[in-house]
Amino acid sequence: MDVVWALVAAALAVHAGYALWIARRLDRLHQRVDAAAAALDEQLRVRAGAAAGARPAAALQRAAAGALAIDGLGREREQAESTLSRAISTVNPDEALVTANARAGYARAFYNDTVRDALVVRRRRIVRLFRLAGSARLPAFFEMDEATPARRTIDV
C-alpha cells in the first residue's frame, strides 16, 4: 500500500512540477504580450503624430486625429489605424512618416507573434483545466491594413 501511495505522490509531484513550469512560461508570455502591446500602442501613436504633422493633406490629418483619439488596442482602434494606413498610402510620405510607419508595422508583427506564442500555450488542456493562466485575459491579435508607401531605394 505504501508503494502505491508513494507512486501516486511521485506522479502528483511530477504533474505539479510540470504545471509550475507551464505556469511560469505562460507568465513570461503574458508579460511579453503586455510589453509588445505597449510598444505597439506607442509606435502607432508616433505614426499618427508623424502623419498629423505631414504636409497639408486633410484626409491624412483627419485619419491621424481619429487614430489618436482612441485608447487601447480594440476593434475601433484597428479600424482607425487601417483608415490611417490607407490615407498614408495615398500620399508621398516624408522620412519621419516612412520611419514611423515601418516601426509601427514591425511592432504589430512582433505583438502578433507574442500573442500567437501565448495562445498556443493557453489552449493546452492542463492550462485550461487548472486555470494556470490565472486572471490574465486571453490575448488578441491586432488586425489592420498596412500602408504601402514607396519602398526605400538608392540611386545607382
Partner: peptide
C-alpha cells in the same frame, strides 16, 4: 521595435501563487 517591445509591466499573479491556487 524589439527593444521597445521588451520593456513592459506584468499583470498576472506570481506563477507560484497560481499553481498553489
Amino acid at each position: 521595435t524589439a527593444i521597445a517591445g521588451h520593456h513592459g509591466g506584468r499583470v498576472v499573479e506570481q506563477p507560484e501563487q497560481v499553481v498553489a491556487e
